[in-house]
């Protein structure tokens, strides 16, 4: 959908999701990078990246724009942390991210930015720098497929342990029909205590890992 195949720009056709839960935030994305969704250039791309202690983002769009953007956002937040109290809020991170995007002449980036700083929050940031908070957000070419599943399966009362499974299923369902998404998955689970990121080689492997509750997390009733 970020149709720049004529320029040969590598894009992450992509399905990414961000979900707010009762005790944290889950971000997930597939791991395919492609040329206009027609040729797979990389099967283990990580499109969920931490940018601060308890804040991470997912990106869809041009890989080049994303890499440069993430470096700049990390630098801005590192400077913020030293000039202020450490730990910029998710709101602040979203504001800085949108500002960086607006400064870019033609950014091809759709972001989902989420974290627990101080409360579980997810923002959708569009290529024009628009910022909207939302309990569920999806981006990339598989967005509609992911939303279709999330509208039915998402429950804001759920814990991150349960939402990992919901996020993994949303990405899985999108990869079934969206040719620009697939191969593997990255899932980030953010709570007030930690930011944990897992990388899976196959889509089904990710789904089975995410649907099996981790031993140390609280199993919700």
């Amino acid at each position: 959908m970020h149709g720049t195949d004529s320029d040969g720009i590598i894009t992450t056709g992509t399905t990414t999701v961000g979900l707010v839960g009762a005790d944290g935030v889950v971000l997930a994305a597939d791991s395919r990078a492609s040329l206009g969704g027609r040729f797979v250039t990389n099967r283990t791309a990580r499109k969920v990246v931490p940018v601060d202690d308890r804040t991470a983002l997912t990106f869809a769009g041009s890989v080049g724009d994303a890499q440069s953007f993430v470096r700049r956002l990390r630098a801005e937040l590192a400077l913020y942390d030293m000039d202020h109290e450490p730990g910029a809020s998710v709101d602040t991170a979203a504001t800085v991210a949108a500002d960086l995007i607006r400064r870019d002449p033609s950014p091809q980036l759709e972001l989902v930015l989420g974290g627990v700083a101080p409360e579980p929050t997810v923002y959708q940031i569009d290529p024009a720098g628009g910022v909207m908070d939302a309990p569920i957000a999806a981006s990339g070419s598989g967005m509609q497929l992911a939303y279709g599943y999330l509208e039915d399966a998402y429950d804001p009362e759920q814990s991150v342990a349960e939402l990992r499974a919901v996020a993994a299923m949303a990405v899985r369902n999108a990869t079934e029909r969206d040719t620009a998404s697939g191969d593997g998955m990255t899932i980030a689970t953010i709570t007030a205590d930690e930011l944990e990121r897992e990388q899976y080689d196959g889509i089904e492997r990710a789904v089975s890992a995410a649907t099996t509750q981790p031993a140390d997390s609280e199993v919700a009733r």
Partner: peptide, 9 residues
């Protein structure tokens, strides 16, 4: 190694 990583973390 993360040679195939899109990010440079």
């Amino acid at each position: 190694r993360s040679a195939d990583e899109i990010e440079s973390e």
